Amino acid sequence: MSVYSVAHIIHLFCAIAFVGGVFFETLVLSVVHSKQVSREARREVEKAIARRAVRVMPWIVGGVFLSGLTMAHRYAAILADPFASSFNTQLFLKILLAFSVLVHFLIAVTKMRRDTLTVAWSKYIHRAVLVHMILIVLLAKTMFYVTW
């Protein structure tokens, strides 16, 4: 098995975990912020999720990015001219979105550690990252099938 194959498998598993986590927190756990859940219960759930996320997500994000960088090495020549073909452009956009996700993730972790992550910031980051991740998954598939 090649280094690329191993990186690809690690990338897929980490991406599934990350996208699944963001999807779950954004679309399923949003009910915690409704009036159906008491303030005390909401705070306990948020603290428990934050503790787990701070321990687990850095490893998952690190796995996604290290494996992604390993795979990107194979496409160095393509990335040198990102607008030469539809494949190049879609791969380039996918990588740009991935780095935007990383920036959002780092902002969230920093705000969590400084205890300045508000509900509004959390909602914004989760929604932005979810949209980015949907676009990344879409590009990951269309770059092999959509040409112009």
Rank of each mutant, 00 (worst) to 15 (best):
F92N: 00
R55W: 05
R43H: 11
E40Q: 12
T70I: 07
G63Y: 04
F99A: 02
L96C: 13
K111E: 13
I107K: 11
L102Y: 00
M71E: 01
K94D: 04
S86W: 06
N88Q: 14
F87N: 01
L102P: 01
A76F: 13
V64S: 05
N88V: 09
A108Q: 10
M57C: 05
L66F: 12
R74H: 11
P82G: 04
Q36P: 00
T89F: 12
N88G: 07
L96D: 02
A77Q: 15
W59M: 12
V54Q: 10
Q90K: 14
M71F: 08
V64Y: 04
F92I: 00
R39C: 03
Y75E: 07
I95E: 03
L66I: 13
L106I: 13
V61R: 07
T89K: 06
E46D: 14
A76V: 11
V109N: 02
R55E: 11
A72K: 00
T70Y: 05
Q90R: 11
F105D: 06
L102K: 00
V37L: 08
M57W: 10
R39Y: 08
R42Q: 13
M112E: 06
L97T: 07
G68V: 00
W59F: 15
M57F: 13
G62Y: 10
F87C: 01
V37N: 07
R43D: 10
E46H: 08
V61M: 14
V54M: 08
F99E: 04
L97E: 07
P58Y: 07
R55Q: 13
A48S: 14
R51D: 13
F99W: 08
V64T: 04
S38V: 09
S67Y: 07
L96Q: 03
Q36I: 08
Q36D: 08
I49P: 02
L79G: 09
F105L: 06
A72P: 01
V109G: 01
V45C: 08
S38Q: 12
Q36T: 10
L102G: 02
S67N: 04
T70D: 05
E46R: 11
L66H: 04
T110R: 14
I107V: 15
W59T: 09
Q90I: 06
V64N: 00
V56F: 13
H104M: 15
A98D: 03
T110W: 12
L93D: 05
L97K: 05
A53V: 10
F65Q: 06
V61W: 10
G63T: 06
G62W: 10
T70E: 01
T110A: 12
L96G: 05
I95F: 10
R42T: 06
L79A: 07
E40Y: 09
F83D: 08
Q90W: 06
I95W: 07
V54I: 11
D81G: 05
A108F: 10
L66Y: 00
I49F: 08
P58E: 03
K94G: 01
A72V: 05
L69R: 03
T110N: 11
V45T: 13
L79Y: 04
A76P: 02
L79F: 05
L93C: 11
T110C: 08
R52Y: 08
K47P: 02
L97C: 13
A80E: 14
R39A: 14
L66Q: 04
